[in-house]
Amino acid sequence: MTKPVIEARNLDLTFQTNDGPVHALKGVSLDIGKGEFVSFIGPSGCGKTTFLRAIAALEHPTAGTLTVNGMTPDEARRERAYGYVFQAAGLYPWRTIAGNIKLPLEIMGFQKSEQDKRVADVLKLVDLDGFGKKFPWQLSGGMQQRASIARALAFDADILLMDEPFGALDEIVRDHLNEQLLALWARTEKTIGFVTHSIPEAVYLSTKIVVMSPRPGRITDVIESTLPRERPLDIRDTPEFLKLAHRVREGLRAGHAYDD
């Protein structure tokens, strides 16, 4: 492996609240290599979302170093290093699907013809061909989330950061989207950071699973997946999958042992 795409060393992040300081992250060190699919899993308050937001320069660490493509997160953002997908699709209701995907392209100043070409490309990539002229409310929740992934892909960033993107969807839709996401990842070779609280989702998708625990938010285990890159849905019934899932569960339980 060459130099990691994302490199965190002894990261601390403390929020000052009215009830005193909250240690969202404490001593977090992690390397993410190019083309990896890394899941962050843990109970709420474990800092998984905070870590993702720190990578995206939406939060700023209070101590430690964090580099993205060898730059600070702020510089990396200006270089359009990543696309970010939120839990809610967050499409603008007054823009069509194509209009929503164009939003980052307009802001980044792409040519009009280039915008149209890219919109068509990413719509194909997320299997929403022909839905460009629809408004968000005309699409199902799963389709809206796919459109928001398309929006994050439109400007061709190497890194895709996803914060529980399928958290609000039902299990059947979720399975389907997980499969599609893996296919997309295989085709585009992007580096993906993926926050989830679902063990099967984390194990199914990832090449690396980062188990985190709260108070203070920290990493308790980093599991390199032994599963092959090619993953049909029924891989989830194999002993190897179950063994990985078991280890994740153990890690989560160990983290909780600190509590009463």
Binding site: G83, Y84, F86, A88, I107, M108
Partner: peptide
């Protein structure tokens, strides 16, 4: 979220 999204651009 909507403001953060714009921030990431």
């Amino acid at each position: 979220d909507q403001l953060d999204l714009l921030a990431t651009y």
